[in-house]
């Protein structure tokens, strides 16, 4: 009984480490294929379009609403202490340090990551990747690496746009609807938001998330069982694993960056 249980545990651990190993091999091939992507910017452009530009709308809308909610809730809390002038600071710091990188990464996993996994998984299922290999075209260079690089480039841009739009949302609610003084809103924000400490650290976070989210999406697609069920499971795994990885990493990064 205990032996069965131990065996099951061992099997799980082994398959986990196998997946981890395959994932790192995938990452290795992605990284060494990057120079050949840079030689063919047109492929990269096409992928930035489908990974980044097509995710832009959901980022704009979500950013605006998240910023507006932060404005509303922040005002309700701050006004009790007569500190509603600090609304700009509260909204900007919450957005730039946490919300913009994390929510962007989560939305990215749902919109672009799942699409990447499904696309690559289907290309594998329909033998397109295999066929490419037989035409002496390396799918790592032609298909996977351009998508990886596009994700890594797009994520910080999306996160910046999310942050800017979110602050606009906070401004609309705070200054436009609730009557916080406009000058105080901006000047308090400027006094307390630091370029390096807050904005740059937020960008670093979203770069890390960009690597992780795109890596997971590409690995799951490339590792999918070549059946329609296998692809659908891989797509689900992409969203779940990316979300967990982003939230976990966010805690670690926050502790490292703002911990002291």
């Amino acid at each position: 009984m205990i032996l069965d249980w131990l065996q099951a545990l061992g099997q799980r651990a082994l398959s986990f480490f196998q997946r981890l190993g395959r994932g790192h091999i995938t990452l290795y091939y992605l990284l060494i294929a990057i120079p050949s992507v840079l030689l063919r910017p047109r492929l990269l452009l096409q992928q930035i379009y489908s990974v980044g530009v097509l995710t832009l709308l959901i980022i704009l809308v979500s950013g605006l609403f998240v910023g507006m909610v932060l404005g509303l809730q922040g005002y309700n809390t701050l006004v009790r202490f007569g500190a509603e002038q600090s609304l700009g600071t509260a909204v900007a710091l919450t957005l730039l340090r946490e919300m913009a990188p994390v929510v962007t990464a989560l939305l990215f996993a749902g919109r672009a990551g799942s699409a990447l996994t499904a696309e690559i998984g289907l290309m594998k299922t329909t033998e397109q990747l295999s066929g490419m290999e037989m035409m002496a075209v390396d799918p790592n260079k032609r298909i996977l690496a351009p998508r990886f690089l596009a994700g890594v480039i797009s994520m910080p841009l999306l996160s910046l746009i999310f942050g800017a739009v979110g602050i606009m949302g906070g401004y609309i609610v705070g200054v436009g609807l609730l009557g916080v003084d406009e000058g105080a809103f901006w000047s308090q924000m400027q006094a307390n938001v630091d370029m390096r400490e807050d904005i740059w650290n937020g960008i670093i976070k979203s770069m890390v998330f960009g690597v992780v989210a795109t890596w997971i999406a590409i690995y799951e697609g490339n590792d999918a069982t070549p059946t329609s069920e296998g692809v659908s499971r891989a797509t689900t795994r992409t969203v779940v694993h990316t979300s967990l990885a982003v939230l976990g990493l966010n805690f670690i990064l926050t502790a490292l960056m703002f911990g002291d």
């Binding site: 900007a92 841009l157 999306l158 942050g163 602050i167 938001v193 630091d194 904005i199």
Partner: peptide, 19 residues
């Protein structure tokens, strides 16, 4: 346009929001 929007956001954050 996407890349320009991203850079514009960075510029806005740097100039208008941060110190």
């Amino acid at each position: 346009a996407f890349v320009a929007a991203g850079l514009a956001a960075l510029f806005l954050l740097a100039m208008k929001v941060s110190n």
